[in-house]
Design a protein around this nucleic acid. Sequence first.
DNA 1: CGCCTTTGTCCTGTGAGTGGAAAAAGTGGG
DNA 2: CCCACTTTTTCCACTCACAGGACAAAGGCG
Lengths: 396, 396
Amino acid sequence: MRRMTARPANAHQARLLKLLRDGGPNSRAQLGDQVDLSRSKLAVEVDRLLETELVVADGLAASRGGRRSHNIRLNPHLRFLGVDIGATSVDVAVTNAELEILGHINQPMDVREGPVAVFEQVLSMAAKLKASGLAEGFDGAGIGVPGPVRFPEGVPVAPPIMPGWDGFPVREALSQELGCPVMVDNDVNLMAMGEQHAGVARTVADFLCVKIGTGIGCGIVVGGEVYRGTTGSAGDIGHIQAVPDGHPCACGNRGCLEAHFSGAALARDALEAAQQNRSPELAARLENNGTLTAVDVAAAAAAGDATSLDLIREGGNRTGQVIAGLVSFFNPGLVVIGGGVTGLGHTLLAAIRTQVYRQSLPLATGNLPIVLGELGPTAGVIGAARLISDHLFSPA
Amino acid sequence: MRRMTARPANAHQARLLKLLRDGGPNSRAQLGDQVDLSRSKLAVEVDRLLETELVVADGLAASRGGRRSHNIRLNPHLRFLGVDIGATSVDVAVTNAELEILGHINQPMDVREGPVAVFEQVLSMAAKLKASGLAEGFDGAGIGVPGPVRFPEGVPVAPPIMPGWDGFPVREALSQELGCPVMVDNDVNLMAMGEQHAGVARTVADFLCVKIGTGIGCGIVVGGEVYRGTTGSAGDIGHIQAVPDGHPCACGNRGCLEAHFSGAALARDALEAAQQNRSPELAARLENNGTLTAVDVAAAAAAGDATSLDLIREGGNRTGQVIAGLVSFFNPGLVVIGGGVTGLGHTLLAAIRTQVYRQSLPLATGNLPIVLGELGPTAGVIGAARLISDHLFSPA
DNA sequence: CGCCTTTGTCCTGTGAGTGGAAAAAGTGGG
DNA sequence: CCCACTTTTTCCACTCACAGGACAAAGGCG
């Protein structure tokens, strides 16, 4: 199939496309209820969208008491590629225009191998998804990288954990390879967009999305829009000082949150505990696997290992302390916790909640839910698809 | 004179009014250069504005090489009232429609006397400004209060340092008394708007404005707009923990920034230093005045008093530490320091800068100016005038 | 089968806005 | 002082988007 290249010609069409994306198939009449346009105008715009083949007719809708209306839906052949590059693994997924995941692959990988090697892998994963018949091509791709991005250009800037990526024209290169429009963003921002689109943050205008993986970052949503800061590094909370004169951090300071709690820090602490024989559970796992990761700590904690539980609680406290400060400052309507360590589950969440509710003022915490992300590993790829669809469903 | 009641009829008129407010008198042609409207359309809208008397003709403009154009300006009889209620004093000022201060009064006062007493004083100050011939009446008033505000209703919510104000219908009441539209906001937000309108932040879209007075607060500007948070308490950074297990704070926690550095904390520490004879300079001032305030510390520091300098440096360090966290999180393009303690001047600023530049990552601090506010005590009232003018110069 | 409701199409009127032409009001040089 | 050139302002005709009503189509329901 020929790939779609059309874009909405005006704000009305853009609005309609987003309604169809977020609400699925809809009749003209239902659309009319949502957009405050005259029926004639609406009909004209829908007809034009049909001409572009961005939307197609889709049979009859259920009757609402009178004549049945014809349904309209986004072209079911549209395909978006969502790519979420983490520090230690890549997620690649195909979605339809409604951002439903049709196929999803996850593979371990190390970003430090550099952009060329990583893209090779991403492209082969995309090819595998194509080969399985899910897509004949892609109409757009969103891609998340674990570091700050100069958003308009789609280029990573000074990413601490991604040596070799600084200034690499990710957007440009991938657009070339895939032959479709590409948008690049920080992985944390994409997670926030994912949870906003299909997860717990659907109805909240201002919220924070804290991702605890190999590092720690925070997506900031203001008025429904991701806020990226002046240089694209907003939300980089991993290097906020959590412990005065604490552990040394790769950034050169001491006591950074990330140095005290993150996937990497947790693995390090777990290893130490195992070697010092403070936790038989962890020691056994070390014996078995040769290494320890956050997953081992989660499993050990689930098995009741006291040391692991302590590690999680301690980390949750630190994180909660930092989040408490952010809550006072930002006064969000919701805080979402996500990322690799969500496996730590309720123990972690309880520790965070305790700190936040204790340290922030009641006015800010009074009605503040602090919850785990709903989408798990799919948040990033859904957010990536959302990113590119927002772009493509805007007037050119 | 009859007060103006007209409002712009559409977005174009609103745009024009704001251009005239921010750029002063302008010719039709100059306006045309800025608004991307056809000459005919522009002429129509200007004529309508002239009819409403919101703008008036104002003689001929300088020639730009051809026919001289007629100048247009906002009605010079328009008057806004800017009120900035602090914890210990009130500022009231009259501005014209271009937000230039025509008269400004400051009087000591204690917010804790409650809204009724404070308003009595504000109204008498406003009356005094009227009596001096600066205004015959007010076309709008902006008012800042030192605590969180439910913005749409203009009502303080759970203000910690303003007992008796919780839920008091400030907007409603003042509007009644003054007979003009009123908008209410947090004093820190108004300071941010003031610096944005006429101060150091004129060209920056995203910035923080930290006000250190009796308490500590932070105005947050995102994309040129003040961000107020879900419940209106955004920027309430005084109760972020700055020192683990530090001084007890009125809020019930320990180690809050405000408990370690603020006008009140500084006065307390100075008193202690004087009584313990650690500072002859401060002791002498205590002897003279019977009390000590931040002003005394500033004066003593200026005179070279080592203890006072230490207090300021210590406080600046604490504040800088918190700001460093906010900078990492928010990645602003500018940080403005203002409020009562700006008298502490460069010593304070240097301490803050040191902490921020040391603790935040280079990407966020690389091009980040940290400066003192330019407007001093007028920032609040200018911001207040700006608030109400933004409201009145928007389509009804 | 007839009446009612809802949906979709058509058509015309209106008002906003554009862009060109021309008039008005300057400047500056010969 | 006159003339060529510029800029500003007004005027006017034309376009275009859009609303909203009339009407046809299609279905539900008694």
